[in-house]
């Protein structure tokens, strides 16, 4: 059996996002990285691999630049790299059908992904893919190990955390956990450079990208706040508290 991990390349969280002509200017993004929650999914997939659960298939749907992220995944231990070009993809339904078809093709019965991507902040991909591949879905996960009839996962609950058991096939959507992420070593980086990235198109997957009723109108910078007032020293605290009460009405 194999372990599928769904990854997305996004602007690094330290990167500035600039908007020009009503669109986010991707060419101005200084650094692209694996979406942070996906890093935790990948780490968990590698731990499952080490526990003998199978090889790790890393799958992404994105433009050509995303190949770099797949190579980064290989450098820490991903075995098979699959890039699905995102041509014609405009809404989450499209991404879900492509990823689900690639998961089925890989023969994986456990899928790991981030709870949401750091660019679109959606969070629909994991639950959507789980439905399309007929897998049980567990979200807000921070740890997974084999156990019980399938896997045991630690997930956030309204009252704290809970350990849940779920049979195969299943999908885990990861939150940031306390797990330390591994860093690639030199050998891993060298090996990853030689690793082939398989490009699998929607045609290869037998998926038709239909029309979507979602259309992007515009991107804009966040609303600019008028400059605030600045005070010197702790002596100004009473004045600020008075303003919070009288002007802002928040206390």
């Amino acid at each position: 059996m194999t372990i599928a991990v769904l990854l997305k390349q996004v602007p690094d969280t330290t990167a500035k996002i600039s908007v020009s002509g009503g669109r986010v200017d991707e060419s101005a993004v200084s650094k692209w990285s694996m979406s942070p929650y996906d890093e935790y999914a990948l780490e968990a997939a590698l731990q499952l691999k080490e526990a003998g659960e199978g090889d790790v298939v890393a799958i992404t749907c994105g433009p050509a630049r995303a190949a770099k992220m797949l190579t980064d995944a290989a450098a820490v231990g991903a075995d098979t790299l699959i890039l699905i070009p995102d041509d014609g993809v405009t809404d989450s339904t499209h991404v879900q059908s492509l990823l689900a078809a690639a998961v089925k093709r890989s023969g994986s019965d456990v899928v790991l992904c981030g709870k949401q991507a750091a660019d679109t902040n959606g969070g629909s991909t994991g639950p959507g893919v789980s439905h399309l591949v007929g897998a049980a879905c567990v979200g807000m996960v921070s740890e997974v190990s084999a156990g019980g009839d399938g896997f045991i996962a630690l997930r956030a609950s309204p009252t704290g955390n809970e350990r849940v058991e779920v049979p195969r096939p299943c999908l885990f959507a990861f939150d940031k956990g306390t797990t330390e992420l591994r860093r690639p070593n030199v050998r891993g980086i060298m090996m990853a450079k030689k690793k082939q990235i398989e490009t699998v198109t929607s045609d290869d997957l037998g998926v038709t990208i239909g029309a979507s009723s979602v259309s992007l109108q515009s991107h804009s910078p966040p609303p600019v706040k008028p400059p605030g007032q600045k005070f010197e020293g702790s002596d100004s605290v009473p004045a600020v508290v008075a303003k919070l009460r009288d002007e802002a009405n928040v206390i």
Partner: peptide, 30 residues
């Protein structure tokens, strides 16, 4: 289709939401 975490909504339907964790705002119609 699904659009998550809308912060504004107008008839029609026009949806406003933050992207890149609020570093930009997108407006989509659906």
């Amino acid at each position: 289709p699904i659009i998550q975490d809308a912060t504004g909504l107008e008839g029609g339907i026009t949806v406003t939401r933050g992207i890149y964790s609020g570093k930009a705002v997108e407006t989509v119609s659906v």
